[in-house]
Structure formats: C-alpha cells, structure tokens
C-alpha cells in the first residue's frame, strides 16, 4: 500500500469525522428543538381537546380566593377529596411563566424520565399534586429539546408561575432567587424544602433545571408558594393578562 493511499484514506476519515460532528451539533442544537416543539404542541393540543370534551373528572365550583396560608389547618375541600393520581407519562397541566416570555407555555407531564422530558416539563412522581398541600416539583430542560428553561436565571422573587389543569388556574409566586445546588440534593423537593426559607407546611412549587447551561454538575432551583386560585371559567388570571 503506497503512502499516497494511506494519507488519502486518513484525510477522508478526518473529513468524515468532522462532518459527523457538525451534523451531531446541528442535531443537538437545532433538531431536538424542532422535535420537542412539535411534541409539546401535540401534548397541549391533546390536553385542550381533552378539556374541551369535559373529560376532567371533578368540576369544583370555586370563587376566586386567596390561597390558604401556610398555617391552614387542612379542613378545606381538596384535603377531603384528593384528586385522582396523574397517569405516568401523560400531560395533565399547562404551565405559563410570563418572565420567560409572554407566549411561553409548556405542558407538564407526569414523571421525570428522559423520554418524558423530551415532550414537556416533568412532574416529580411522589411530590404533591397541583395546588395540593406539599411541594409540586417540576423539572425541565435548560438547553436542547426546545430550551424550555433557558432563561431560568432571570426568575426573580414575585414572578408568577401559572398553571392550569383545565378546571382551575393556579398562580404561584416565586419567593427565591435561583438557588444553585448539587444533583444529589433531593431535599430541595421535600414537602417543606430545605434552604427555601419556608418553615411550615404549605402549598409550594419547586422548579429544577441544570446548571451550568450546557453542563450537569449542578442544579438550579426556585421555590414558589400558591398565591391564588380561580376557576377556569373565570378566564385567565391577572398574571397572564397584558
């Protein structure tokens, strides 16, 4: 085999590897977003058609009301009548965070598996349900798959996190700046999250994503408390009106 053939083959291999890397970067940066956006739209569509058919189990007539405080004794209706458990891998709510963009809305699915997080935000199994006592914890991608939590560090105390399950709007208010922690710190999704500043049981929300933006060495966390609820028929809550 002549030197010429060896050099030529080596060059061709280098070009091939280079092309592969460029394609892979294009896939990660661009194509996963395209796929995730269409998957998320699909999830939201399926939720909305489900809701419009009235498939939501319990229609609880509620008036706009301030959320029960942390010192609430637990004699309210929700405690008496716990909602049905969410189906694993299925969407059950839509989340809106005006700080991340007026049109920012993502489906929330049950579970935090890799495949679930490709289709939307993931609700930690074993944490409280929407609006219930305890901690409603949700994870989302910072980068890739539609970059749902790209602007996570912009979140500030007082920002609204609004969710709807088709019957009720839940408005949570963020209480902390993004808190950086290590991946093994599961206490951040405890019913009363450690380091959150909350001292008593209440209706909390936790959002988690990765930190740094393209890495996985740490996690960013924000905590919020339930500020208000109103029935879906009452229209969008104040936080979503322009």
């Amino acid at each position: 085999m002549s030197v010429r053939v060896v050099v030529r083959t080596f060059s061709e291999l280098c070009i091939t590897v280079g092309a592969l890397i460029v394609l892979f970067v294009a896939y990660v940066l661009f194509w996963t977003g395209v796929k995730a956006d269409s998957a998320m739209d699909h999830q939201i569509d399926s939720l909305q058609s489900q809701w419009s058919k009235g498939a939501v189990a319990v229609q609880q007539p509620q008036q706009p009301q301030p959320a029960p405080t942390a010192t609430d004794t637990g004699d309210d209706k929700a405690a008496v009548d716990p909602p049905a458990p969410y189906k694993d891998g299925k969407p059950f709510a839509v989340m809106y965070i005006p700080r991340l963009g007026f049109t920012w809305n993502k489906p929330v699915l049950q579970g935090t598996g890799v495949d679930i997080l490709k289709k939307g935000l993931g609700h930690y199994a074993g944490t409280a349900q929407l609006g219930q006592k305890g901690n409603f914890a949700v994870a989302g991608h910072r980068r890739t798959y539609g970059d749902p939590f790209k602007d996570f560090p912009e979140l500030r105390p007082g920002d609204a996190v609004v969710l709807t399950d088709g019957t009720t709007w839940f408005t949570y208010r963020i209480d902390t700046k993004p808190y950086k922690t290590v991946p093994g710190d599961v206490a951040v999704i405890d019913p009363v999250p450690r380091k959150s500043g909350y001292k008593e049981p209440g209706r909390y929300l936790t959002l988690t994503t990765c930190e740094p933006e393209w890495g996985h060495s740490h996690r960013l966390i924000v905590w919020a408390h339930l500020d208000a609820t109103q029935p879906a028929e009452a229209g969008k809550p104040e936080a979503l009106r322009r």
């Binding site: 996963t32 997080l117 994870a139 991608h141």
Partner: peptide
C-alpha cells in the same frame, strides 16, 4: 444524545 449531560435536570 442521552450520553451528553443536557438530560440531567432533576435532583
């Protein structure tokens, strides 16, 4: 793609 770190968003 899952071999890359971008999927680790949970605690």
């Amino acid at each position: 793609e899952p071999l890359l770190p971008f999927n680790d968003v949970t605690v």
